[in-house]
Computed example of a mutant assay.
Amino acid sequence: MTTPRDVAIVLGGGSAPDRLTPDTTMRVAAGVELYRNGRVNRLHMTCGNTHPGTRPGRLMAEAAIRAGVPPTAVTWEGQSLSTLQNALFSRPDLPRGETRFVVTEPFHGLRGAASLAWAGRPAAVCTTSETSGTPTRKAKVLLREVAAWAVNIPRAIAFSIASALGLGGVFPDILLA
């Protein structure tokens, strides 16, 4: 067996007011499986409140704990509204020097890994087996992914330039959503 990674960063796939979406549920299950199989030492869940009053990151953590992951092996953040924010807002829970997997669906793996690398927390990709839904929904998800790259690259560049110039406080995090 190979040495386990320190953490699996499980990216949320959207949220509903009182439950996890099927995409997020699949991602959590994949993270739990990595933990059960000894491939990671802990899980970090990241997904923000796309619906007022919800905390999908917390719901993700609770689902992992119900699935048998000890509470001490699960952290979460619940403010991020995008993959860039997932990476940026998770940094305090992802110390430098750790080894990481990012857990998401196949279509999202490269952007998830790129976002974490941009935030200074690079990770290898571990994907779920598939994307949930009908063929029409899958096509829409793939088109959205292409569009997300077109938006994320300029936002990440602008945020990085502002930070390098000491203007990070002028460039609000919400512009990364």
Rank of each mutant, 00 (worst) to 15 (best):
P4A: 01
P4N: 06
R5A: 14
V7P: 02
A8C: 11
I9A: 00
I9Q: 00
I9K: 00
V10Y: 05
G12C: 08
G13H: 07
A16V: 02
R19D: 08
L20W: 09
L20G: 04
L20A: 06
T21P: 02
P22S: 08
P22A: 12
P22L: 08
T24Y: 05
M26P: 01
R27N: 07
V28I: 12
A29G: 03
A29K: 08
A29T: 03
A29Y: 02
A29H: 05
G31T: 09
G31E: 07
V32E: 04
N37L: 02
R39P: 00
N41I: 00
T46N: 00
T46K: 00
C47F: 04
C47E: 03
C47L: 09
G48I: 03
N49G: 11
T50A: 08
G53Y: 10
G57E: 01
R58G: 08
R58D: 12
M60P: 03
A61Q: 04
E62V: 07
A63H: 10
A63Y: 05
A67C: 14
A67I: 14
V69N: 03
V69L: 10
P70D: 06
P70Q: 11
A73L: 07
T75S: 11
T75F: 01
W76H: 10
S82A: 13
Q85I: 05
A87N: 06
A87V: 06
L88A: 12
F89S: 00
R91S: 11
D93W: 02
E98G: 11
T99G: 09
R100P: 02
V102Y: 04
V103T: 13
E105I: 07
P106K: 10
P106L: 12
F107I: 14
L110I: 15
G112T: 04
G112S: 05
G112E: 01
A113I: 06
A119F: 10
A119C: 13
V125T: 14
V125Q: 12
T127M: 07
T128L: 02
S129G: 15
S132Y: 09
G133L: 15
T134W: 14
P135K: 07
T136Q: 13
T136N: 05
K138D: 03
K138T: 09
K138I: 13
A139S: 04
A139I: 05
K140D: 10
L142V: 08
R144V: 07
E145I: 13
A147N: 15
A148H: 09
W149K: 13
A150S: 13
V151C: 06
N152G: 10
P154K: 13
A156P: 10
A156W: 11
I157S: 06
A158R: 15
A162T: 07
S163L: 03
G166H: 11
L167N: 07
L167S: 04
G168Y: 01
G168P: 01
G169D: 14
V170G: 09
L175C: 06
L175N: 06
L176D: 02
A177V: 00
